[in-house]
Amino acid sequence: MNVFRLTGDIAHLLAIILLLMKIWKTRSCAGVSGKSQMMFALVFTTRYLDLITNFISLYNTTMKMIFIASSYGTLYLMFLKFRATYDSNHDTFRMEFLVVPVAGLSFLVNHDFSPLEILWTFSIYLESVAILPQLFMISKTGEAETITSHYLFALGSYRALYILNWVYRFYFEGFFDLIAVVAGCVQTVLYCDFFYLYITKVWKGKKLTLPA
């Protein structure tokens, strides 16, 4: 464990808490992409299958359970409890355009052709593009609530911090996982446009609006 990975995991946990807070306090999931949240739940489900079989540490097991529980909790809030506030008209990104190629790629490019490894690879590839429906939705509505922009900033920062963690582990532990690094870089690059808007607007107290 190193400081980059720890802060990355905390940023990830913060993002999930911010989203749950936003939905619970505003009693609305307006501006949040249900499709991205469905893909995040799929990411955690396919990545943490070893939760039962492979104990690594109490921290690892606890965080995995929190991530799985909160992702399904978010789906419950969005599609059941506050379903009336779900903005399906603007959440129109075709998930199959992401899930199918990612599934195909995880069969072609992986470290080991075993079910658990292919599912892990699938979850890594899927996570790198899972935010696209959310970013697409913001581009369609042209704006995002401030707390939603904080959620996205924390979520984007988590994988950026993981890149620093992989640099650290490469030099100090000789650990290098090409699949995780490439997918992590793609994932972080997808946030660049949002990071620019967030830093130039939200940090100046303005609302996050996209140039028309």
Binding site: R5, D9, H12, N54, I56, D112, E117, F175, F176, D177
Partner: peptide, 10 residues
């Protein structure tokens, strides 16, 4: 070298 260590990362 590429090594897929046990998945100790989240």
């Amino acid at each position: 070298e590429i090594c897929s260590m046990p998945k100790d990362e989240l």
